[in-house]
Computed example of a mutant assay.
Amino acid sequence: MKQLPVAMITVILAAGPGPQAASACSPAAHPPSVRPETGPGCDWRFRTGDYEAVSLSGLTDLGGGVIAQRLREGNACSFAASLLVTDCKSGEAMLFGPDRVTLMEGPKSLPVLRLLDRLEKRPRGSFASLSAVSAQAEASGVRTSVPVPKGSELRFGGKVRMPLHCGCATLYPGATK
């Protein structure tokens, strides 16, 4: 009987038995954060537990004083994805989503991710109000949205506070009052 080289066995095992096989996902453990990690583009991250984190992406300038940021809560394998859109002129914001993402179920086209893709592909200024973004959200299949009162912050687990003022202060400092 002819034996396969070890490298060939590894390739066969990695490929799996076929398209019916489910993908495995194991998030890596990280110690919980003591304080949030922040970046220059108003990105923000806090590890709430060994396998859980909340994060806000850098800024997407939609033009006309409107900005968007992706919000993510969970881990590398399973998380909730939302989109925070802020109108810096009025100080009002809207949180669209969340969509639940489980990588073991395979890739999906989620309404919140479709919404951000559509917003980014249109000319800057096409969505210069929350009502214009809300109409696009509905067209993208987003069924859940929550208004975020002016001056609010998002809270997670009762102890983690995510400030929301950075984006407007960075891109539209004269627009906010």
Rank of each mutant, 00 (worst) to 15 (best):
L4P: 02
V6G: 07
V6R: 11
M8K: 11
G16V: 10
G16R: 06
G16L: 05
A24S: 10
A29K: 15
H30T: 13
P36Q: 08
E37K: 11
T38K: 05
P40S: 09
C42F: 01
C42E: 03
R45Q: 09
R47H: 09
G49R: 03
G49S: 15
D50Y: 12
S57K: 06
T60E: 13
D61N: 09
G63V: 03
G64D: 02
G65D: 02
V66L: 00
I67W: 04
Q69S: 10
R70C: 06
G74K: 01
G74R: 06
C77I: 08
F79I: 08
A80C: 08
A81I: 12
S82L: 02
V85Y: 07
V85Q: 06
K89L: 10
K89C: 08
S90T: 14
E92N: 10
M94F: 02
V101I: 15
M104T: 15
P107E: 13
K108M: 13
P111G: 02
V112Y: 06
R114C: 08
L115F: 01
L115S: 02
L119C: 00
E120D: 12
S131N: 14
Q136L: 13
V142S: 02
P147R: 03
K150F: 08
L154H: 01
L154P: 05
F156I: 10
G158R: 11
G158C: 11
L164R: 05
L164S: 01
H165V: 11
C166I: 08
C166T: 04
C168S: 05
C168L: 03
A169K: 13
Y172C: 04
G174E: 11
K177H: 15
